[in-house]
Design a protein around this nucleic acid. Sequence first.
DNA 1: CTTTGCATGTAAACCGTTACATGATTTT
DNA 2: AAAATCATGTAACGGTTTACATGCAAAG
Lengths: 177, 177
Amino acid sequence: MLSPTARVILGMIRLGRRSGYEIKQLVDVSTRFFWAASYGQIYPELKRLEESGLVRSEDASTNGRARRAYELTERGDEALDEWLRSGAPLAFEMRDEGMLKLFFSDGVPAEHRLANVRAMRAHHGELAAHLRSIEPAAREKGGGPYAALRYGLAFHDFCAGYLSDLEPELEAELARR
Amino acid sequence: MLSPTARVILGMIRLGRRSGYEIKQLVDVSTRFFWAASYGQIYPELKRLEESGLVRSEDASTNGRARRAYELTERGDEALDEWLRSGAPLAFEMRDEGMLKLFFSDGVPAEHRLANVRAMRAHHGELAAHLRSIEPAAREKGGGPYAALRYGLAFHDFCAGYLSDLEPELEAELARR
DNA sequence: CTTTGCATGTAAACCGTTACATGATTTT
DNA sequence: AAAATCATGTAACGGTTTACATGCAAAG
């Protein structure tokens, strides 16, 4: 069974021969929002994947600049396919500190509750803006990455919008004192 | 500074004198969807919080049934307030395996892509249904917990709806072969 | 009398982030 | 000459889940 991090790594490698460094860059501009990975996970996992024969690597240095490029083996390709096609339960986790504050906010002054909701809205707004900025480039390429981007964009827009609608209520409460 | 788990624990205790067991039950029916906690975190953290003077405990056994009830100390109350009022950046993390599969789904047959989207929709649909089932009780009590519930409900409804709209596209693609 | 629920806890394994160390190359 | 970027990696720490161990009480 593929470890959590192995899933992104194999997926990124199938998109083309890649180094650990490149995988990290790619993750940071694409899946990061729903599936992150750090160097501390990527490099050791690449080693493990090579040991278990799912990837194969080659030196790909260019004039003195060290670089090790990985590609899928046949077994790696199969493992990735198997995961993509399996109907196993999908991990879904969310941690939202703003929501936790909202939950416990009964004792605190309306002023702080409003600040919290505004911070939440700002966060979703920024993510949506970022995704919108890369949308044209992603549209060109289409496919799965573009579908994921559109979903993420819709999602963050929705959150920002919902929270935005919440603000007037809190502002009214604040003014009512 | 409060550890992640300390935040839920203190919040739950402020809602009333509680045992570790009760905190876990409460988390499981309320904050779980945006902030989970396991026994393995709760019991040790309660000890740490007591050592650092943020909570105080008493034996609350009733005829042979062991039970240790915790309540906030003044310092615990202040620490909770400080967190709730602080403008520190809010943790927000999401891990969505369905989205990751969607991202990498270009190679796989439309059939599997459709199954994935359906599974994602089902998941959000079930969560929304669950929240809807406890909505009336939460409405009675109102306040922060109810606000969080409404947000969560709107959120999962939105996701289920979006994914639902995606299905016909994939079904068409499937039929087109 | 057996199962479910109340109740507390620990240990191991796993996962993940952060910070650090190193060094070459390209850009400013 | 300095700063940014390419590139690889490790160690320490912190956080989380899972599985296990224990035992009494209530309900069926």
